[in-house]
Amino acid sequence: MIVTASNLHKTYGSTVAVDDLSFQVVPGQVTGFLGPNGSGKSTSLRLMLGLDHGGGQTLWDGKPLPLHPHAPLVVGAHLDAKFFHPNRTARAHLRMMAAASRTSATRVDEVISLMGLESVAKKRPKGFSLGMGQRLGLATAILAEPQVLLLDEPANGLDPQSIHWLRDYLKYYASQGRTVLVSSHLLSEMEIMADHVVVIAKGRLLADESISDFVNRSTTNDVLVRSPQIRALVTALAGEIPGVQPRPEPPDGLSVSGLSTDQIGDIAFRHGVPLHELTKRTASLEQAFLEMTQAAQEYEMGRAG
């Protein structure tokens, strides 16, 4: 199911939380929803679900959510690890949510087992840890096996094993032809989990592309070259490619942006410069993200100034 968010807009007083945000989430892949704190990720998710009122609309397979006869089969959302009554047992909470989608009690037990909640199924969630609350929230979201999963920071408070499990599960879920949108600030996790990213800052769209395209756009992608004749190499590079600006990386290295390893190797060979290392360095998602959000912030500050 394709989810199309168009011109989402939300203001709180004079503060613009989401500013004309449009993007599409497609099935078959995990889409990461990234942005700094306060960038409007959670507000955008609430707007998409119709929980908050604002501008724009979200279509779920071409229709607004209220026009689908059974919304729980369309979307399962997990927005907060504390959205349950503290005195309703975990199982009763899931049984209650199951009534919304006519999900069977067998499926409830299945989800309890899948999420590792067996030992606390009959306990009241008021004493649950953040991680246990996350599991219950995730169990609620996947209960009816919806076509779309919308998860807001689902890995918060989870232990490493659970994060690993979550990553595998979401990838599996998406591989079944379903749509998964996950907001998170754990960029290292996102890098492994997501295939596509939607990046926002100050409520505006910064990027909507595959992770590899997003990372490749970063200026921190470079080539590390080590040589015993570093001065000769700098001269050779400057001579053949005007404008190239290698940066020294002590003790005997250079960081070269904008050239491939093949190009640098060929130039060094032609000029008889021996190389001890020639490594392509790709920016991490974190580097690319920081670079992009920082640039957006500077642009905003510049506009304000």
Partner: peptide, 18 residues
Amino acid sequence: GHEYRYGTIRLTLTAFPR
């Protein structure tokens, strides 16, 4: 009351958007 107090209103209105 319970729905607003514990935030479950968001679960309810997601499951039943009308």
